[in-house]
């Protein structure tokens, strides 16, 4: 028996206004959030409304349409991702122990960090590859839809109060040295060694609207898919499948799974506990 839908009218109206706002943002700025997960969008829109002093999503929509500068500031409410360097150290340890030996067999290696946000994972991967003496023959694509986040990622600058956690993660992830070997203290934070990003290309790319741009040996996309609904998750994983070489690797966030999507059978589990998958033969 299908239960009667008794949604509060107010919630229904709020959701309707959010959908119209997303449509407006898409038409005006070509950013497509229409297939983002509604449960977290609702919450973020409430935060954005409070920040920009709007009583309703429709008020925020009006301002976003007419004030492009405000949209640039509001973008962080659509895309905000909090990460750490070497977040989930077990993931990076598994990369080192199980993925690196395979990558080593290729003359050149391409990796794609999809939805890299402010770059914590990109710099972590660069350090890991440098320690494995693979960085010189690697190319890392670091992509995101948020230009401000990409700029921050490229700067390699992180707040001082975050570094202690980064260092703990680095050691737990099997780091060979001390994280402090890779950064220098600067005004208001630390700056990572520019040599690490010689092999990194930072680029604007949307998993919602863009297509595959290169063949890669590994995709790392962690805690990005959780913000997508199932349709958009399927689209993104389809891009990963198309971008990956034969038997290429896909790494997801620790509570993300391919099992509920349409591409489940195109990948096999490689290190199940760390959500590392491998593309199966077509």
């Amino acid at each position: 028996m299908v239960p009667e839908v008794t949604r509060d009218q107010e919630t229904e109206l709020f959701d309707m206004e959010v959908r119209l706002l997303l449509e407006a943002v898409y038409l005006r700025y070509h950013y497509d959030f229409r297939d983002y997960a509604v449960s977290s969008l609702r919450r973020r829109m409430r935060h954005a409304m409070a920040r920009f002093d709007c009583a309703r999503p429709s008020d925020l929509q009006h301002r976003l349409l007419h004030e492009p500068d405000l949209f640039a500031q509001a973008l962080q409410y659509f895309t905000v991702q909090v990460s750490e360097m070497f977040r989930d150290p077990g993931y990076f340890l598994a990369l080192r122990e199980h993925v690196v030996p395979v990558l080593r067999t290729y003359p050149s290696i391409k990796l794609w960090v999809a939805g890299c946000s402010t770059g914590e994972e990109v710099w972590s991967l660069a350090i890991l590859l440098a320690e494995e003496e693979l960085l010189e023959r690697a190319l890392i694509y670091a992509t995101d839809i948020n230009p401000e986040a990409l700029q921050a990622a490229e700067s390699g600058t992180f707040a001082l109060d975050r570094v202690a956690q980064f260092s703990r993660n680095y050691l737990a992830a099997g780091g060979r040295a001390s994280l402090s070997d890779y950064y220098t203290s600067a005004y208001q934070g630390v700056v990572f060694d520019r040599r690490l990003k010689k092999q990194v290309v930072f680029a604007d790319h949307s998993l919602a609207t863009d297509s595959v741009f290169s063949e890669v040996h590994m995709v790392s996309c962690r805690n990005v898919l959780i913000y997508f609904n199932r349709d958009l998750q399927d689209r993104a994983v389809g891009l990963f499948r198309d971008a990956l070489v034969h038997r290429g690797f896909l790494g997801l966030g620790s509570k993300e799974s391919l099992q509920f999507g349409t591409h489940a059978r195109e990948f096999e589990q490689f290190v199940p506990a760390q959500r590392l998958y491998r593309k199966v033969a077509a």
Binding site: A37, S39, S40, R43, R44, V80, Q81, V82, S83, N223, I226, Y227, R230, G253, K255, E256, F260
Partner: peptide, 8 residues
């Protein structure tokens, strides 16, 4: 269905 987030 359920969803997860790493919002603040």
């Amino acid at each position: 269905s359920l969803a997860l987030s790493v919002d603040e």
